[in-house]
Write a protein that binds this DNA or RNA. Structure first.
Length: 201
DNA sequence: GAGTAGATCCTCT
DNA sequence: GAGGATCTACTCA
């Protein structure tokens, strides 16, 4: 159970980081309440050349400023006025790459996650989809910019690995507005996993 | 099971 | 002033 080293996030290829995050565990510690979940679905956002990214065309605003810093921090923003989306910033300072965590498998603090989500009992939707994932783990825009080896929010490796053959790539979800870039196979997921969003493959 | 509308608010133009 | 890296519930079949 070790926190991922800084070098993990600083790598140049955001696709590798997105793929390698599968199977890792996100842990949050909010007011002493610990929840954790294993990542089963991610999407890569390749910075200035990627129409689906907030940083396309080197756009730099208060909102996406975090993406321009060193990898290893959280970029969290509000989508559709309702959903807090959790991203992992990658690459070195000046290159705004990020990986969106889309889905995970609940591990610790399931009761708390159910309470946060207003659910009565555990079902597959608890941490399925980026909005649900963030809500269950108690991740909000107020956590934007936080380091991923911090006490409140961290990502660890417990040695678990999904079989290579179960890791698949596909076009990203919900980015139709990005034109040709919407077709890029930048989404990585565990084939057949119940917590993966979208239609079963 | 498939398709669609509505929620809801911050951010950027 | 428009629209979004979404989710849910509802309709219709």
């Amino acid at each position: 159970m070790e926190k991922l080293p800084g070098l993990f996030y600083l790598r140049r290829n955001v696709l590798h980081v997105a793929r390698d995050l599968l199977g890792k565990i996100v842990i949050t510690n909010k007011d002493g309440i610990i929840t954790s979940a294993r990542i089963v679905e991610t999407e890569a956002y390749a910075g200035v050349l990627d129409r689906a990214s907030h940083a396309f065309g080197a756009r730099r605003t208060n909102r996406n400023e975090v993406m321009y810093g060193d990898g290893g921090r959280a970029y969290i923003y509000l989508c559709y006025g309702i959903h807090h989306l959790f991203n992992v910033v990658t690459n070195v300072e000046g290159i705004p790459h990020a990986v969106l965590v889309r889905a995970a498998e609940p591990i610790l603090g399931i009761e708390v996650m159910l309470e946060r989500s207003g659910k009565q009992k555990l079902d597959k939707t608890l941490t399925r989809g980026p909005g649900n994932f963030s809500r269950a783990l108690g991740i909000y825009t107020s956590d934007n910019g936080i380091a991923l080896d911090s006490k409140v929010l961290s990502i660890v490796d417990d040695g678990f690995k999904f079989p290579r053959r179960d890791i698949h790539a596909s076009p990203r979800i919900g980015v139709d507005y990005a034109g040709v870039d919407a077709q890029l196979p930048y989404r990585f997921y565990i084939k057949g996993h119940p917590n993966v969003s979208g239609k079963p493959a």
